[in-house]
């Protein structure tokens, strides 16, 4: 091999690469400017759970344990208690309420079975996905972290409208 043929081969290779690069330039960009620009998530996105309350601010959960029973990774822990006070005074909507409601996000696989199992529509998946913590123990979220009235929603996402076409890995490029 001579020096000249080397130069020709290298130039060919560079041109071949640049051809691909240049052909991508006019196409839509895939890079998202997170966290400067909120990420758009689908309406059915399964993020951190939300425990809901009714219109009077009473917890909907009656601690029936069905979510814990449905959970395949056994990450939900509940302790039920009875609250015989009248509706106005008590915490939950019903006489029975969850004194302890923990979800271990170290175990949760976000399958959504708990949401399907819930007979009272008390638990749903929210959109919070920023669950990283510095300490593994902090992955255990208590009722205070999960309640819709207490959970802080991140500013780093926006939920797509149902009509909106959201980017996804399934999208044809």
């Amino acid at each position: 091999m001579s020096l000249i043929s080397d130069v020709i081969q290298s130039t060919k290779a560079i041109l071949l690469g640049m051809k691909e690069t240049i052909s991508q330039l006019p196409k839509q960009s895939w890079t998202v400017q997170y966290p400067d620009v909120p990420i758009t998530v689908q309406p059915r996105y399964r993020g951190q759970h939300l425990l809901h309350v009714d219109e009077m601010g009473k917890e909907k959960c009656v601690a029936c344990y069905l979510c814990a029973a449905a959970c395949p990774s056994d990450c939900i822990y509940i302790e039920a208690e009875t609250d015989p006070r009248p509706y106005e005074e008590r915490i939950g909507r019903d006489e029975r309420f969850a004194r302890v409601y923990n979800i271990d996000y170290g175990r949760c696989i976000f399958c959504g079975y708990c949401v399907e199992a819930c007979p009272k529509d008390a638990i749903t998946h929210g959109y919070n996905f920023e669950l990283s913590v510095y300490n593994r123990a902090d992955l255990l979220k208590t009722k205070d972290d999960l309640l819709i009235t207490k959970q802080k929603q991140s500013k780093n996402y926006r939920v797509a409208l149902s009509s909106e076409d959201v980017d996804s890995e399934y999208k044809e490029v």
């Binding site: 601690a63 029936c64 344990y65 029973a69 302790e79 039920a80 009875t82």
Partner: peptide, 9 residues
């Protein structure tokens, strides 16, 4: 045992 837990638990 009122509202304490569930039998399967």
């Amino acid at each position: 045992y009122r509202h304490e837990t569930r039998p399967w638990e």
